Simulated assay, not measured.
Amino acid sequence: MAALLLVLAVALGFAAYHFWTGRPQTVQAPPVESAARSRAALSSAPPAAGPSVPSSASAPGGRSLLVDVTGEVRRPGVHRLPDGARVADALRAAGGVRPGTDLDGLNRARLVTDGEQIVVGGHPAAAAAPAAPGTAAGGGPPAGPVSLNSATVDQLDALPGIGPVLAQHIVDYRTRQGGFSSVEQLREVNGIGERRFAELQPLVVP
């Protein structure tokens, strides 16, 4: 009888042990404040290092040009154009051409260069020096006085006793001195002596 009671007691003890250890355990959730701090730490962490890109990087060929547009345009002045721009682009940058402007001789498809000046409305022959009064169109001997301040080398060469070298000396003197104020200044030109000056005096004017 005592042995039976002892066996029952041992069996009840094992059953109680397994019941106690097999019951569900309560798990405590992490504090809300700790989770919030973790998210804040992640958001404030510095980004991963990567290749740096300069903020002022420019695309290849991004050079700009400065062009002076004058004449019959709405906004004459210096305008900045992209590299590879043409005369037509410069005209648009200047506000367009005024109505009725003659564009003969102006190549609007030409590429512009940095620092150039585009004159709108000028005649193709505007850059040439005006013909001297009384000078023959074919380059022959002059029919009247030749202006020392406006004659070209060819026109001066047509004067008696003046060759291309001496004509160039006259033009060079005119450039250095800012023009002739009197015919007597021809004496100061290298290569003109008294005899040649006497031949030229009635044929030229300042």
Rank of each mutant, 00 (worst) to 15 (best):
I118N: 06
S55A: 14
R108G: 13
P54N: 05
E116W: 05
A88L: 08
G84A: 03
G61I: 07
A45E: 07
A128T: 14
T113R: 15
P51N: 10
R80E: 09
S38F: 11
L66K: 14
D102F: 03
I118Y: 01
A90W: 01
R74D: 07
G84T: 05
G84K: 05
L42Q: 14
E72C: 05
V119G: 06
D114N: 13
E72M: 07
L91T: 01
R110V: 05
S58F: 03
V120A: 02
A126R: 13
G105Q: 02
V87L: 09
R63T: 13
A127N: 11
P76D: 06
G95S: 03
E33P: 15
G96M: 01
S43Y: 10
V78S: 11
G61T: 07
P99K: 05
A129M: 10
A85G: 12
S56W: 09
A40M: 11
P99F: 04
P99L: 06
T113S: 13
P124C: 01
A128N: 13
G95A: 03
S56F: 11
G121K: 01
D104N: 15
P46D: 01
R92G: 07
G115K: 03
D102P: 08
D89M: 02
P54A: 07
L103D: 05
A125I: 07
S44F: 13
S64G: 10
L81D: 02
A35H: 12
R75P: 11
A49P: 08
G77V: 04
G77P: 00
A90D: 01
A126F: 08
E72K: 06
R86Q: 09
G100D: 02
Q117P: 07
T113M: 12
G96S: 05
L91A: 03
A109Y: 15
S34W: 12
A48I: 12
A36V: 09
V120Q: 01
D89C: 06
S43L: 12
V87Y: 08
E33K: 11
G105K: 03
V78D: 06
R110L: 13
V78N: 09
A36C: 08
P130C: 03
L81A: 06
A125D: 13
N107Q: 15
A49C: 09
S55R: 14
R74H: 07
L111C: 13
